[in-house]
Design a protein around this nucleic acid. Structure first.
Length: 627
RNA sequence: GCCCUCGUAGCUCAGUCGGUAGAGCACAUUCUUGGUAAGAAUGGGGUCACCGGUUCAAAUCCGGUCGAGGGCUCCA
């Protein structure tokens, strides 16, 4: 008999326990798994058991940890005598295809603690889980469960696992052709760094081969859109070993995209009552001591720089500088709100293993802003930021959002700074703002920052993936620490409220996300090269340059390809550069004074007068649309 | 930071059993002046990431460092 333990379903007590009646329990880090599709969830969970069975056959001494279904698949964690190889993965997958048709029924049974301990005597991780279930009445997430603890096992064939289920009734319900093991990865036992490092096998299964193929096609599409790959191919950015990890070099074309975004950002902010400021990149350590970063954020900050015996820190955040500017004069209630936007470049220490292209870096430019306002203005300010945020994101083609409101936890008030009344005011301001704009949102109790409640917006990209977007944080801490004041109507000093917010997040992460969202085919207004002018033969080069001049005069970003390549090759190159418009010109066009328009979509619009083409492009730019 | 994998020409990659390197693309030159996704020939280009070790001999084996990738943990 072989033993294992699976993660998500262990020993949870329900009175009438059966697979069908079993409540849907989503693993914490990947929510929404089985809410929509319990069938797939059961299938995946069951397949993870079959995988564990195959692993145990290959490594009888394996220690099993947990093996839940997750979004898009499943995994199982093992403690093995040696590192797994891709060959192991193949062999395990092959063995699974043999085990599945054996038609082994899944059998559920509740067991006593003593029986559980003897069944899993050689399985330390399992025993630890039993301990927690029995002694603490907690599941594997450390969450308390209702009712008396119950231990349950699932058996199929030679494999027994400590498990709450649910499972399919028989392995035959799994389609062996729709099973695929995907990758091997390291994972800490229970996700804790001080616990042993286990080997995790990720896999997936669908009801049909077609379902699996569609999923694999999506994975290939994700790969195709990878911003690191496209960033190199499109010559947008680079990183350099000799330059240091996690630092982005923006090449001319990437810089042009960024510049376009930043110009748009400034324009939008000014229209909405923001002023734009700049602040230094370093500041004395004393500043960071007052702000609290020295105590609470030190692990993300770089070592001090000594200047004439005084210690300075590279800034990980822009906010203390905004505060200093606020304090340069006495502020009246009439001056508020002050909205100060800043494209501020910050540097944060990130552990080497988490760095990832443009998405996770050590130096980045936030599209930051700090709003200083009266408590009674807070709601309006939040509404203003929400409107701004959604307007910006929709402009960049994001249409779907998930909004979270992080508030204080009533039971742990001690963790949060500030008066009850101030918190209540702030939290209700955020609720009201979201309601006023009919934004659906999820309340996250206890997830507030220690200095105030926050709204986080995630946007979904073209592939439905979620990206961290705008964040709006109310702050009572800074005004306190820096003793910020404004003079009220009655002449008394009052405490302003501060709002920290970003809309795009950081230029690095946002552009990295945009590359993947658009698969490198940027809408015309963002495309680094908007028009490629393609003369067919050398004798058309002069005409091509005349056309180029006209385009440049019309503020259109254009290039002439006057290389010795054939026209076909020039078209191909422009296609691969994902240039929205190609203008092909030969004898006919020179004669007629026209340009032949080919779109990136491969649509051929045929010859057009140049003026007509220019207004076409200008319109596409103005509307921020694709051709 | 931790586990696993990887680092060969500007890019994408071959390189068997240890015997001091190859292709395609790109680039340069020449020929070709071609109507909507690759015209042809010739040529230049590598301290095989870096440091050290084993060996008569290291791209290849071993150790370390740096960097990258898949994860864990953490975040804009």
């Amino acid at each position: 008999m072989r033993h294992g333990a699976c993660r998500s379903e262990i020993g949870i007590v329900r009175t009438e326990f059966s697979d069908l009646a079993a409540p849907a329990i989503a693993p914490r880090r990947r929510p929404g798994v089985d809410e929509q599709n319990e069938v797939l969830h059961k299938l995946r969970h069951s397949t993870s058991h079959v995988m564990a069975q195959a692993v145990l056959e290959r490594f009888p001494e394996a220690k099993l940890a947990i093996g839940p279904a997750i979004e898009d698949g499943f995994y199982y964690d093992f403690d093995l005598p040696r590192a797994l190889t891709p060959e192991d993965l193949q062999a395990i997958e092959g063995r699974m295809r043999e085990l599945i048709p054996q038609g082994q029924p899944f059998e559920y049974r509740e067991v006593s603690e003593a029986e559980a301990r003897s069944l899993f005597a050689g399985q330390p991780y399992k025993l630890e889980l039993i301990d927690d279930i029995v002694k603490l009445g907690r599941n594997e997430y450390g969450e308390a469960d209702e009712g008396p603890p119950t231990l349950s096992i699932y058996r199929h064939g030679s494999f027994v696992d400590l498990c709450r289920g649910p499972h399919v009734s028989n392995t035959r319900e799994i389609n062996p052709k729709a099973v695929k093991l995907l990758s091997i990865a390291g994972a800490y036992w229970r996700g804790k760094e001080d616990r042993p490092m286990l080997q995790r096998i990720y896999g997936t299964v669908f009801q049909t081969r077609e379902g699996l193929d569609a999923h694999l096609a999506k994975l290939a599409e994700i790969d195709r859109r990878d911003h690191r790959k496209l960033g190199k191919e499109l010559d947008l950015y680079s990183t350099h070993e000799i330059g240091g990890a996690g630092l982005i070099y923006w090449h001319p074309k990437g810089a042009l995209i960024r510049e376009t975004i930043e110009n748009f950002w400034r324009q939008v902010h000014r229209k909405r009552g923001y002023d734009i400021v700049y602040s230094p990149h370093i500041g004395r350590v004393d500043l960071w001591k007052i702000s609290g970063h020295w105590d609470f954020y030190r692990e993300s900050m770089y070592s001090p720089i000594d200047i004439d015996g005084i210690q300075y820190l590279l800034k990980p955040m822009n906010c203390p500088f905004a505060v200093l500017m606020y304090k340069t004069r006495t502020r009246s209630y009439r001056d508020l709100p002050l909205r100060w936007g800043e494209l501020g470049t910050v540097y944060r220490y990130e552990r080497s293993g988490v760095l990832h292209g443009m998405l996770r870096v050590r130096g980045f430019t936030q599209d930051d802003a700090h709003i200083f306002c009266r408590p009674d203005q807070l709601m309006n300010e939040i509404v203003g930021v929400l409107d701004l945020a959604f307007f910006m994101l929709r402009t960049f083609g994001y249409e779907q959002f998930d909004v979270e409101l992080s508030v204080r936890d009533e039971e742990h008030k001690g963790k949060f700074i500030g008066e009850d009344s101030v918190w209540q005011n702030a939290e209700s301001a955020l609720h009201e703002a979201l309601k006023l704009r009919n934004v659906p949102y999820k309340v996250m109790p206890g997830e507030a920052k220690f200095y105030g409640p926050a709204i986080d917006i995630k946007m979904r990209d073209a592939l439905g993936r979620g990206w961290q977007g705008p964040t709006i944080q109310v702050d009572f801490n800074f005004p306190e620490r820096f003793d910020l004041k404004f003079v009220g109507e009655d002449g008394q000093d009052r405490r302003p409220v501060m709002v920290h917010r970003t809309v795009l997040g950081s230029m690095e992460r946002f552009v990295g996300g945009l590359i993947e969202h658009y698969a490198g085919a940027f809408p015309v207004w963002l495309a680094p090269v908007q028009v490629k002018v393609i003369p067919i033969a050398d004798r058309h080069n002069d005409y091509a340059r005349q056309v180029l001049t006209r385009l440049l005069e019309a503020d259109i970003r254009a290039e002439v390809d006057d290389t010795a390549d054939r026209m076909n090759a020039k078209v191909r190159k422009a296609q691969m550069e994902k240039v929205p418009y190609m203008l092909v010109m030969g004898d006919k066009e020179v004669e007629a004074g026209t340009v032949s328009v080919r779109l990136r979509s491969e649509e051929n619009l045929g010859p057009k007068p140049l003026d007509e083409f220019i207004s076409l492009v200008q319109q596409a730019i103005a509307e921020k649309k694709n051709p």
